[in-house]
């Protein structure tokens, strides 16, 4: 005997496509959203580093390309003395060779021998983000006591990077909207195709006294289950790809790209298949409700 919920659906229905379309859309949307979240995280990290740190560069070679030797250590000491007495500066440390190596690895690779390169000595300055030092004043003071020192607030290159990241986030948002719109259009199409194939069933059930809400709910829940199954398949398939990309990014970018997600951000990702299923439910509901209006 057929189950109570079966009588509205014959085998001819075109629901075959719906789970696979949902799976594909959720697969793409999950990866795109994960990329967006990683970009957002990196953006936050970069903005935080702009707000909370400065770098003072002490050149190790003079303009003629000769080593400055002990002048470097004098400049470092003077710079540290000035920085540690500047309001808004929480601390200042000179990066050692290992730290320099870590810093250069994303750009030069792990095999680069930092000590053999004409790199300046770097003083990492921690700044009170709430009460930062006045940069122009600090620049002037530094120029007076350590004329060769260069104050780098990272704002220039990070500003470009932040603008790029924001543009990328906008693009990702648009792609997600397009993906969801595609799901909605697909649901309308497949539901209408299915309704047309099964019009004789609907017409009969309507004539036997089925309420519009009853028929509409049956269809909407049926499509919801189909879409949820497909969406979960798409989501599960996206996970190993996400982990793969995350591991790859960590290996090539070090700390520059923040590809690990927080638990809340994982919830956002889980919302992708749930949203596609919910969108399918609502779109089906509206489509069937409108279709039934052709019957008296």
């Amino acid at each position: 005997m057929a189950k109570r919920s079966d009588f509205l659906f014959s085998k001819e229905s075109s629901h075959f496509f719906l789970p696979w379309i949902c799976a594909l859309m959720v697969f793409i949307a999950t990866l795109v959203l994960a990329g967006g979240i990683a970009t957002h995280n990196s953006l936050k990290l970069w903005q935080k580093s702009v707000a909370e740190s400065l770098t003072v560069q002490i050149p190790t070679y003079n303009e003629e390309g000769k080593p400055r030797e002990e002048l470097v250590y004098r400049d470092i000491e003077n710079a540290l003395m000035l920085l540690r007495t500047t309001p808004g500066v929480l601390g200042a440390i000179v990066l050692n060779d290992d730290q320099m190596q870590d810093l250069m690895t994303p750009w030069l690779g792990s095999d680069a021998v930092v000590s053999q390169l004409p790199l300046p000595k770097l003083i990492d300055v921690s700044v009170d983000a709430a009460h930062p030092p006045v940069l122009e004043q600090l620049k002037a003071d530094l120029a007076a006591s350590v004329p060769d020192a260069v104050l780098d607030s990272h704002r220039l290159w990070l500003g470009d990077l932040v603008r790029f990241a924001n543009a990328l986030l906008t693009l990702i948002g648009l792609i997600l909207i397009l993906l969801f719109a595609t799901v909605a259009i697909t649901v309308v199409y497949t539901t209408n195709a299915s309704l047309s194939i099964q019009e004789h069933i609907l017409s009969l059930v309507h004539m036997l006294g089925a309420q519009d809400l009853y028929i509409t709910n049956r269809y909407a829940w049926h499509n919801f289950k189909v879409a949820l199954t497909g969406s979960l398949i798409g989501f599960v398939l996206a996970l190993p790809i996400m982990f793969g990309i995350s591991i790859f990014l960590k290996s090539v970018s070090g700390q520059i790209l923040q590809s690990s997600l927080t638990s809340v951000q994982w919830c956002y990702l889980v919302l992708v298949p749930a949203s596609v299923a919910l969108l399918t439910f609502l779109t089906t509901f509206k489509t069937v409700w409108k279709f039934l209006r052709r019957f008296l």
Partner: peptide
């Protein structure tokens, strides 16, 4: 007749009762 071909005789006859 307007019978539903995907349902057997029992389920066709049962339709009004199931809807009720």
């Amino acid at each position: 007749y307007h019978l539903l071909n995907h349902l057997n005789a029992f389920d066709n006859v049962a339709l009004p009762l199931r809807l009720a």
